[in-house]
Amino acid sequence: MHAYQHQREFHGLPVVEFSGEAGATGDRPAPGAAAWRLAVPYGAGTGFDALWDTFLDTVDPDEVRALLIGPWWTDGYGPVTDALARVVGDAGRLPALEALFVADVTSEECEISWLEMSDVTVVAAAFPRLTELVVRGGGGLALAPFRHDRLKALRFEAGGLPGTVVRAVAGSELPALERLELWLGVDEYGGDSTIDDLAPLLDGARLPALRHLALANSEYQDEIAAAVAHAPVVAQLEVLDLSMGVLSDEGAAALLEGQPLTHLRLLDLHHHYLSEELQQRLREALPGVELDLDEAEAEYEDDPEDRYVAVAE
């Protein structure tokens, strides 16, 4: 999706925009039958506080299962800190919350690199029933290692994901986690992680339930592929996603020369810099695996210095 359009479905539920209008329910769905998106309209005279208060007074928060925080600012793309604090501060009124998307904001509303985030560690502590967490944006993003016994899906989307966040994820205790997605991004926008930061994730010992791993959108995608080729975690995966980055023939060859990948259901390499020869070798080596080789960029950018990830600014 690359943050070009809003979520239409989240946590298996249709996304419904909360208009901010109190009173008559009209065609409004039951609180637990939708994923509620709260977004401050462009040029609104009131901010997220007023929208949030109206939401709690209008939609029974006891039954709400999924929330998406859209644009929270009235001007200046301010940090999400206060809006997130309101949601976390009312955690006791949201006992059924299972899924939270922080910053369902499209590039038309605000470029991903302009999104100002905050420390999201508080979310895990506030919502013990949470099974899905998505955070978009890397600027100002912070995370400390945490334990959560019910979280099944965790995704960080960024044009530059701080290495401190990657290390915090790697150092967390997430025994139920089935799906982990990290858009690593580029150094220019704060993506300063290294291959060493990923080592605990690739080991897999702390992620016994993991079945879907995405280490994507990276400037060092070839290094990741070479490490993945011998990583213990791969044996337990159904989906391996190394897409959106600058994967070249070097990285693809390392994958082919490493451990078998024939057990995978999907190998996602879209947005890549592979030659036709390497693409064909992958197809021949993995005949029973769904292989996504869309968005081949090699013919356009022969110079490695000119290669780019799918999502940066």
Rank of each mutant, 00 (worst) to 15 (best):
residue 108 E to P: 00
residue 109 E to C: 13
residue 110 C to F: 03
residue 111 E to Y: 13
residue 111 E to C: 11
residue 112 I to A: 10
residue 112 I to L: 15
residue 113 S to H: 12
residue 114 W to A: 15
residue 115 L to K: 07
residue 115 L to P: 01
residue 115 L to T: 12
residue 116 E to W: 02
residue 119 D to H: 07
residue 119 D to Q: 09
residue 120 V to T: 14
residue 120 V to C: 10
residue 121 T to A: 13
residue 122 V to S: 14
residue 122 V to A: 15
residue 122 V to R: 11
residue 123 V to A: 05
residue 123 V to F: 02
residue 126 A to T: 06
residue 126 A to F: 05
residue 128 P to A: 08
residue 128 P to L: 04
residue 128 P to R: 03
residue 129 R to M: 01
residue 131 T to C: 11
residue 131 T to D: 14
residue 131 T to I: 08
residue 133 L to K: 02
residue 134 V to C: 08
residue 135 V to F: 03
residue 136 R to Q: 14
residue 136 R to G: 01
residue 136 R to Y: 05
residue 136 R to H: 12
residue 138 G to T: 07
residue 139 G to C: 11
residue 139 G to N: 14
residue 141 L to Q: 09
residue 143 L to E: 04
residue 145 P to H: 08
residue 145 P to M: 10
residue 147 R to Y: 00
residue 148 H to P: 01
residue 149 D to R: 13
residue 150 R to F: 00
residue 150 R to Q: 15
residue 150 R to T: 13
residue 151 L to N: 02
residue 151 L to T: 04
residue 151 L to F: 03
residue 155 R to E: 15
residue 155 R to Y: 01
residue 157 E to L: 13
residue 158 A to Y: 04
residue 159 G to D: 05
residue 162 P to I: 10
residue 163 G to Y: 07
residue 164 T to I: 07
residue 165 V to K: 06
residue 166 V to W: 04
residue 166 V to H: 08
residue 166 V to G: 11
residue 166 V to A: 12
residue 167 R to G: 06
residue 168 A to P: 07
residue 170 A to W: 04
residue 171 G to Y: 04
residue 172 S to N: 06
residue 173 E to R: 14
residue 173 E to W: 02
residue 177 L to C: 06
residue 178 E to D: 09
residue 180 L to A: 12
residue 180 L to R: 06
residue 181 E to A: 15
residue 182 L to Y: 03
residue 183 W to V: 02
residue 183 W to R: 08
residue 184 L to T: 06
residue 184 L to N: 04
residue 184 L to D: 03
residue 185 G to Q: 10
residue 186 V to R: 03
residue 186 V to L: 08
residue 188 E to W: 04
residue 189 Y to F: 15
residue 192 D to L: 11
residue 192 D to F: 09
residue 192 D to R: 08
residue 193 S to T: 13
residue 193 S to N: 13
residue 195 I to S: 09
residue 196 D to F: 01
residue 196 D to S: 09
residue 197 D to M: 11
residue 199 A to S: 10
residue 200 P to H: 06
residue 201 L to M: 10
residue 201 L to C: 10
residue 201 L to D: 07
residue 202 L to E: 06
residue 202 L to D: 05
residue 203 D to R: 10
